[in-house]
């Protein structure tokens, strides 16, 4: 089985994955939520475009014989698989809190891992088209939530606008850019069924993803004020799902949006990682690749100190990925006179 995805399907898959990843990272996983995160979400998109252009120049994932491309594909594979493991860890904690406290973590991970395996084996188009459907359903779901919560949003809680200042915003912007790295891996491996000369990643795509993530963060910030004490992860999740003032049944669409969004993200990242693995080792069957990647994602959250290690590494993810890509692109440009590796 060859893992592949069309451009039509890759764009929505990457869009949903990027928006979900940014939102989860800034509103839940990245420590205290400060007022400036929505600006960081917007600014984080800026370095992503040159990064993707460089990737396209190097030809990662498209030309398996180019050594540099293979090395970079390996790097992206590692980043995507580790991020997938991080998402599994988020699912594990959230499901444990919201649903099944005393259940063993293994049992909580098993279903989502099986679901991700099933979806990856259905191949990329299925994942992408499902993301396309979700991209339509999600605004409707959020609209219901927002209408019902409207009177509980407090715009004055957005001030002071810059949160802890530009320094923190810059740090979070880099962190946001790191969120695009695993999410956009899927764009690098997509098929161009109808070659129209367009790049698979466009300015509009990235701008829209960052705008949507930023808007969601604005609404999140209007639900709870900036605090002097850091909240626990679980409390942040609780504050995300309900602001404590609105009726509790409003959590239903929020929980559905949260879990389904996470599953789309996980499926997209698992597929991207499995497809990259298959590009690196073309003899491997797609199902085997999916199995290997998903096994890694399922096991890593149980490794002691994995989470704290990733927490430390996450802010540097973009730099770790972008630097070699930029160097490779520069060298390609220098040695090949601007030709892409596959053309050389």
């Amino acid at each position: 089985m060859k893992l592949s995805i069309s451009r039509d399907a890759a764009l929505p898959a990457a869009f949903v994955a990027a928006v979900t990843r940014i939102f989860i990272d800034l509103a839940l996983d990245g420590g205290p939520v400060h007022n400036g995160v929505w600006i960081a979400a917007l600014l984080g998109a800026l370095p992503v475009l040159p990064y993707l252009v460089c990737l396209d120049m190097v030809g990662v994932g498209k030309c398996r014989y180019a050594t540099v491309g293979r090395l970079l594909a390996g790097l992206l594979l590692a980043a995507t698989a580790l991020d997938g493991a991080r998402i599994v860890s988020v699912v594990l904690r959230a499901s444990g809190f919201l649903v099944l406290d005393p259940v063993s973590p293994f049992m909580l991970v098993l279903p989502v891992v099986l679901a991700a395996l099933w979806c990856t084996c259905r191949n990329g188009d299925a994942i992408g088209y499902a993301a396309m459907l979700w991209r339509r359903a999600f605004p409707a779901l959020m609209l219901v939530v927002m209408i019902l919560q409207w009177r509980h949003y407090r715009p004055q809680w957005l001030r002071p606008w810059l949160g802890n200042g530009w320094g923190e915003i810059a740090g979070e912007a880099i962190r946001t850019a790191g969120c695009y790295v695993p999410a956009t891996s899927v764009l690098l491996i997509c098929r161009h069924d109808d070659e129209t000369g367009k790049r698979p990643f466009t300015v509009a795509w990235i701008a829209l993803a960052s705008a949507v993530a930023s808007l969601l963060l604005v609404f999140r910030l209007m639900m709870t004020p900036s605090g002097t004490n850091d909240m626990a992860w679980i409390t942040r999740l609780d504050a995300l799902l309900t602001n404590g003032r609105a009726p509790l049944y409003l959590q239903l669409p929020m929980i559905v949006a949260f879990f389904v969004g996470l599953m789309h993200l996980l499926a997209c990242e698992c597929f991207a990682a499995a497809a990259l693995l298959q590009r690196l080792i073309p003899r491997l069957n797609g199902r085997v690749c999916a199995g290997i990647v998903i096994l890694i994602c399922a096991v890593l959250p149980f490794v002691r100190s994995f989470r704290s290690m990733l927490d430390r590494a996450m802010p540097w993810l973009f730099i770790a990925a972008a630097l070699p890509v930029a160097l490779a692109a520069l060298s390609q440009f220098h040695f090949n006179g601007g030709k892409r590796s596959c053309e050389s």
Partner: peptide, 8 residues
Amino acid sequence: AGHFATVP
């Protein structure tokens, strides 16, 4: 608070 740019 609106008079200030940052929380600190």
